[in-house]
Write a protein that binds this DNA or RNA. Structure first.
Lengths: 339, 339
DNA sequence: GCGTGCACCGGGAACGTTACCGGTAACCTT
DNA sequence: AAGGTTACCGGTAACGTTCCCGGTGCACGC
């Protein structure tokens, strides 16, 4: 191939400006020890020639790449999207750019090893640090700059930010109980995921605290998906003494409950109240009352933490808990016994 | 800084395997001229040492970086998200990874220059090619590998993929007319965006073809946002002879129509039918009948085109039109005059 | 026995940038 | 006025990889 299409490099700029390569580099990195008029001249030439620094060469030489890697399970989930919104906002405010990887289908067992692969790839060459959303792996090279958002495991060896799952779920349950509900169904998340487990525990604890004894038929095992949520809700609502409210481990499952109710000719909230978790945008359209865990905020904070890590500044807290907030909409109503 | 944290490089692998650096490189690039037992040995060492190739160095030396840049106006729009889903799927099937940039607020006038900057940055150093979603700029360096999805302008100098806006909007209008609607409102998109303009033209043409004379009060100027859609719908539905149906230039505007109707105590579709455009996921929950323009598919195809461009293979078509499809849901009903 | 071809491998020069070291001139300091 | 300090700049060696070129050993044919 002809070298015809070679882009202008620092050398060309140097020649055009009549200075050395070193000086151009100094200007580029805004060092102090360069006379202000040479700086002006070089800057002018750069602007005129339309020079943009070659990131590859720069990354190779200096350790700083100004790139943050993001590993996300599936870009299609509203959950991922919400987090990405926050990440994106933080990135825009920083000097970093974003490199995106997806691990693809979460259910495939290879997710964890995929993660490992991506992370090491990103870490030792192209990115300065990595954010992993819903990381499956518990351990990573401990001194690599890694931050996770909502990790699956319980106590990973890297910093992370997480919603207050237990608190939020408790709040939701207390709300339901306050409305008079006594038979409350629960659709779980995937069992291996910590946040879902904590919500389940909150459900159980709230029940016992209210003096209601558990009915195991009322907790149905879901997997955070709408389709499974729908199927489980169909079962729950077919019980001879069906629950007057269903608390779903996330909004997508809750949407499944809406679908199931509709199919059965039941009305939300008249025949069954529904509460979700996450507050994804769809929740608004359905009037779903849910627990907002500020996913975007979590992404935003994760970037901030990672940047500190990259700059070798100390982290205030290795784990950040984000308080949740119950947002009331129209999917719940008071219950005073079967009318 | 200590060189303590230096990652293992190709040289370390070479030493450990007892071969030269060149040979390791050959194995890495799966060249033919290497004995199969040496290959095995090198591969084993690589696996054992957990070596991952340094992307920066590789990119600098060889022109191929295996990275595709994506420039997207705002990651929060359902529109962008849909396209990204398709892009992501195509990326997963290819050997490329994805680098993501957002131009931020579209309304800011700097969008086009931002684009130029990103594209040149991506092009000459870090990425092999660039996909621009809803590109505002009409011209780019013509021999750079660039593909656009749904460009704003009418005839940019780079390849692009686009929905069949006119056809789709025509189909929607014919549907509405078939249902008996005669007073049909239209909420436009932003005027400078070609796809929106084509939908508007289809609206007008369908009306004249049906022998209905235009009422300018029925076309309200929107900007693709829900909020503006809501406001325009409020006005439209407050007309003394209000339209029996509203066709919105995109789904987000249509959602605004739903909100407006609700606020005014009107029911969709009983008091007013609504049709949108895009078929974003939210449309399903609202029961919005809309024109699916297969945004994800568009993203998918764009990646395929770009890959061909990068590989210097000829493109079948410089512009790809994706046929649309009307998806009927529950936001429309027949109309036989004010009851 | 010697050239020829083949299969495999190693050496070194790039790629574009930054870090380091050293050099020059002007300006203080005493 | 001589030495020291400062401000600025240039030369060059890396960074880790790929590409090009050439070299080795072996088999083969004449």
């Amino acid at each position: 191939m002809r070298p015809s299409r070679r882009s202008t490099g620092i050398a060309d700029v140097a020649k055009a400006a009549g200075v050395s390569i070193s000086t151009v580099s100094r200007v580029l990195n805004s060092r102090v020890d360069v006379a202000s008029d040479t700086q002006q001249r070089v800057l002018a030439v750069i602007d005129e020639m339309g020079y943009t620094s070659n990131l590859a060469a720069r990354s190779m030489r200096s350790r700083r790449k100004n790139l943050i890697g993001l590993v996300v399970p599936d870009i299609g989930f509203p959950y991922s999207i919400e987090i990405m919104k926050g990440i994106n906002r933080a990135i825009a405010e920083s000097t970093f750019d974003l490199l995106l990887y997806t691990t693809g289908d979460v259910k495939k067992s290879g997710a964890a090893s995929h993660e490992q692969h991506y992370v090491s790839l990103l870490n030792n060459s192209i990115a300065d640090g990595v954010i992993i959303v819903a990381s499956a792996a518990a351990d990573f090279d401990s001194d690599a700059p890694i931050v996770s958002v909502d990790p699956h495991g319980d106590n990973p060896n890297y910093p992370f930010v997480q919603g207050a799952n237990y608190q939020g779920a408790t709040e939701a349950m207390e709300y339901l109980l306050r409305l008079g509900h006594r038979r409350i169904g629960f659709i779980t998340g995937r069992p291996e995921i910590g946040s879902g487990a904590r919500r389940l525990k909150a459900y159980r604890d709230a029940l016992t605290k209210a003096g209601i004894n558990q009915d195991d038929r009322l907790v149905a095992s879901g997997d955070f998906s709408t389709e499974t949520g729908r199927r489980r809700a169909l079962e729950l609502l077919s019980l001879e003494d069906r629950p007057s409210a269903i608390f779903a481990a996330n909004d997508q499952s809750a949407i499944g409950v809406f679908q199931a109710a509709e199919e059965m000719g039941l009305r939300v909230p008249d025949d069954c109240s529904v509460v979700g978790f996450d507050n994804i945008p769809e929740a608004k359209y359905l009037g779903l009352t849910t627990v907002d865990q500020f996913l975007a905020e979590m992404g935003y904070i994760a970037v901030q933490m990672l940047v500190r890590l990259i700059d070798h500044e100390p982290l205030e807290d290795r784990v950040r808990k984000i308080p949740t907030e119950l947002v009331e909409r129209t999917s719940c109503r008071p219950w005073a016994g079967r009318s």
